[in-house]
Amino acid sequence: MFDRLSEMFSLAFMQRAFLGGMLVGASCAFLSVFVVLRRLAFVSQGVSHAAFGGVALAVLVGLNPSLGALVFSVGTALAIGGVSRRRSWVEDSSIGIFLAVSMALGLLFLGLKRGSATGLYGYLFGSILSILPSDLPWMIGLTLLVFVVLFVFIKELYFYVFDETMARVAGVPVDALYFGLLLLLAITISLGMKLVGAILVTALLVIPGATARFLTSNIVALIPLSIAVGVIGVALGLTVAYLANVSPGASIVLVLFLGFLSAFLVSGRGA
């Protein structure tokens, strides 16, 4: 067992997987607190599926798939925000529409692509073991961006997610915060796709925050706890995947879910 673990940490691709995975896990988990409190889980699902359309288009025209994912995620997030800010009742419906349309576009682009598109499997279900040394600098940069933005506006975000009306009256720029949250969500999703794929990335954006909420009623403890859950979940999931030789994306999500289930039972809310 210890031999296998020391072997795992000696492999360069596993070192990159741990570093990249824990960085992205941390930024997803930080954002997760606001996704859970502001109930943006379905928005994140919609944006992550939209990213798949961007990946397929980028593959079709010969661009970097990650760039395609980022552009489509940001575009869809802003479109969902714009539509739902005009008519509050359509947030739910607009997500459903954008999600389906982006997936349909993805399928269409794949159909137009001549030859095999097997590389796309990695964007659907994750390819954390294929993180390249050149991926790490922008992963570090975007993680820093997420942390800095969330830290700068942290108290305004808390006020906004607790009581939007009062925050607006007090002069908090709630519309800018809403769109800012959606933008960060889109950026984080395009990062998280590399880890667990478009289908499963929502887990990284929902489970850590939801788990932390079961464990504490203290607003200050919520963020460090959520980040700890996210980082430990990714590290443990990767380790299990290596030892058991299973899909890392699936392993990370299932480890996070076990943590969520334990927190649910420990908190007594399952009763």
Partner: peptide, 10 residues
């Protein structure tokens, strides 16, 4: 939360 607008961003 009522003090946040006076404290300022960041």
């Amino acid at each position: 939360m009522g003090t946040f607008p006076q404290v300022g961003f960041g």
